[in-house]
Write a protein that binds this DNA or RNA. Structure first.
Length: 615
DNA sequence: AAAAAAG
């Protein structure tokens, strides 16, 4: 028997009331869940009209499933839970500016919410993510899953088991999600239980939904949080950061779908676009803010955004966000911009790869977190055929031309399948694009020196098939979900094997097989070993010459070593002995995959440099 | 060394 979300809210509310809360007792009769409150009366959906909700004293708490309030985890007590829902606990509250009683959803309800499910027409024919992401559900049982940490909540098998609320459920149906993906099955219960999370999972594995659902559901429960209002500053409750503007837009588009008619407002801000429009959006209210770091910092410094009410922090592509270039900025946002410290917010980090050094940095932002690694559907790269060819620098262009001609033969329905060509530099991207243009190939390019308008146009043109060849720098390496990319060409190989993994992950999506071709030469010697290893681990044919190069560079430092089976993009560093000896971070019974041999076969291959990151 | 991210 499955109770409705509204019921469970009402029930736990009365439980709370019964256990000593002195506030007015909400009763079932007066409770109207937020997602029903702001339905436009003329809505196509059957919904009761907004029945005169009582504004000021409508304090409905939420006990959370199975005692799973966020406040419960970190030594929170019942009273803390109480203060959490009635306002914001101590410490989160800043300047003495007045508090208003505005209920965001109601105010917002006056505006008509654009149906995000309607305008998916041109580029992506059907909003059928399950199909688009090509998740092979039959292969689910084989997905390796590794979890570690204390008291890991068990995974769920259906969306029904995790009651996210009727409004979200309806969006799940609109998305045509039938079953949660592996990362969702594992991450959602963890996040609903209020735990911090470090998760390794490929993009396209449904990880955006994995962190959006709990955030949205959490905000719906706590929509009554009173936020300070002072001038034009807005106080989002959740912050989602990503390393590129396009990825932020993509996350925003998805989050809008998940939040449709929930009353939870999602706004995206990023650089390169006029700030005024973004300011106007913010002024209309924001619960979930999706952002790139630079623009966010700008907005916080202008005091247009305050992070002091942030309860959920998500870093997508977290390993990139914490690498050398980004880390100071992220640290500034998280540690020096008034955001509640870890323990007082819920922090979730997602990435396809998680090098140990990055895990170490990340642990600064996390509190008693759970580590989750989910393998790709059907083992690491079954869907991607990887090829490496030895190509001298001077031969690359003519070699590419051969590949493109071959690709042309494979066109379907009069449409080219898409080819994504990665180069190392922005200059190289311009130059290669120009060369392709001269040679009558329908190509465009995307890189960080192009205007945002050009970048977005290039991406649209590529997605639509108008220019089925896209030359890109690493700006497009991560996270972007572009259906129908049949071929990824590593025209210039990256120096880091993780970048390679992210790049080839742009294909092998949409349930189709993908091809990844790499041009290798003397400039890529440092990649020989990790590339050969990776290919070996993912059952690819490794050319003999590459193996020879690999064995020649015997000692190539730690960074590029993949000390993990290719199934996962990472392994919990806390398991590697050098971390915090004495604390049992992975006591028995945590392995929620049910008997997947976690310790066997991992870490054995390379004798991973123990303690390297620590000493 | 390069890429990304603020203008």
């Amino acid at each position: 028997m499955r109770t409705s979300w509204a019921d469970s809210v009402a029930n736990s509310a009365s439980e709370n009331a019964a256990s000593g809360s002195s506030g007015p007792r909400p009763t079932r009769a007066t409770y109207i869940p937020p997602h029903l409150r702001n339905r436009p009366p003329s809505s196509d959906f059957l919904a009761p009209p907004p029945a005169a909700p009582s504004l000021g004293n409508d304090r409905v708490g939420y006990g959370g499933p199975a005692g799973g309030s966020r406040w419960g985890g970190g030594g929170g007590s019942a009273s803390k839970l109480d203060s959490g829902r009635l306002g914001y606990g101590s410490g989160g509250r800043g300047g003495g500016g007045g508090w208003n009683n505005r209920i965001g959803g109601l105010e917002r309800g006056r505006e008509r919410e654009v149906n995000p499910f309607d305008n998916d027409g041109d580029a992506e024919p059907a909003f059928d993510v399950q199909e688009n992401t090509g998740i092979n559900f039959d292969a689910y049982e084989d997905i390796p899953v590794e979890t570690s940490g204390q008291n890991v909540p068990p995974p769920v098998n259906t969306f029904a088991e995790i009651d996210l609320g009727e409004a979200v459920n309806q969006n799940i149906r609109r998305c045509k999600y039938v079953k949660p993906t592996p990362v969702q099955r594992n991450a959602i219960p963890i996040l609903l239980a209020g735990r911090d999370l470090m998760a390794c999972a490929q993009t396209g594995s449904g990880k955006t939904a994995a962190f959006c659902f709990p955030i949205i559901a959490g905000i719906m429960r706590e929509q009554y949080v009173q936020r300070p209002h002072g001038g034009r500053t807005v106080y989002p409750l959740a912050l989602i950061l990503s390393p590129t503007r396009e990825l932020s837009c993509q996350i925003h588009d998805e989050a809008k779908k998940f939040a449709y008619q929930t009353g939870v407002k999602v706004v995206v801000v990023y650089g390169g676009a006029p700030i005024n429009q973004q300011l106007r959006e913010l002024e209309r209210g924001v619960d979930v803010l999706v952002a790139t770091p630079g623009r966010l910092v700008d907005l916080v410094e202008r005091a247009r955004v305050s992070l002091q009410m942030i309860r959920y922090l998500a870093l997508d592509e977290a390993d990139r966000m914490l690498d050398m270039g980004f880390e100071p900025q992220i640290r500034k946002v998280v540690e020096q911009m008034n955001m509640p410290p870890c323990g007082r917010r819920q922090t979730m980090l997602f990435s396809a790869t998680f090098p140990k050094e990055i895990q170490r940095l990340a642990s600064d932002f996390l509190s008693n977190y759970i580590f989750l690694a989910v393998g790709r559907v059907g083992s690491s790269t079954d869907l991607i055929v990887q090829r490496v060819e030895y190509v001298h620098e001077t031969d690359k262009r003519s070699h590419l031309m051969d590949l493109l001609h071959a690709q042309r033969e494979t066109e379907v329905n009069g449409k080219h399948s898409l080819t994504l060509v990665f180069v190392e530099t922005k200059k190289g991207a311009d130059s290669l694009e120009h060369w392709l243009y001269v040679n009558k190939f329908p190509a465009t390019s995307i890189h960080g020196d192009r205007s945002q308008q050009e970048r977005e146009m290039a991406l649209r043109s590529f997605k639509s098939g108008k220019t089925p060849i896209l030359v890109a720098t690493d700006v497009a390496a991560r996270g972007l979900d572009i259906p129908h990319v049949a071929h990824v060409v590593n025209f210039d190989l990256p120096n880091d094997i993780d970048d390679y993994v992210h790049r080839i992950g742009r294909t092998g999506r949409a349930g189709k097989t993908g091809l990844a071709t790499a041009f290798f030469n003397e400039n890529n010697l440092s990649l020989a070993r990790p590339l050969a290893d990776l290919m070996q681990e993912s059952n690819q044919e490794v050319p003999a010459w590459l193996t020879r190069y690999a064995s020649r560079v015997s000692f190539s430092g730690g960074k590029n070593r993949r000390s993990v089976g290719a199934r996962f993009g990472g392994r919990d560093m806390r398991r590697d002995g050098s971390f915090n000896r004495g604390t049992d971070y992975y006591g028995g019974g945590n392995n929620s995959s049910g008997g997947y041999g976690v310790s066997a076969g991992y870490g054995g291959g390379y004798n991973p440099a123990v303690a390297s990151a620590w000493d």
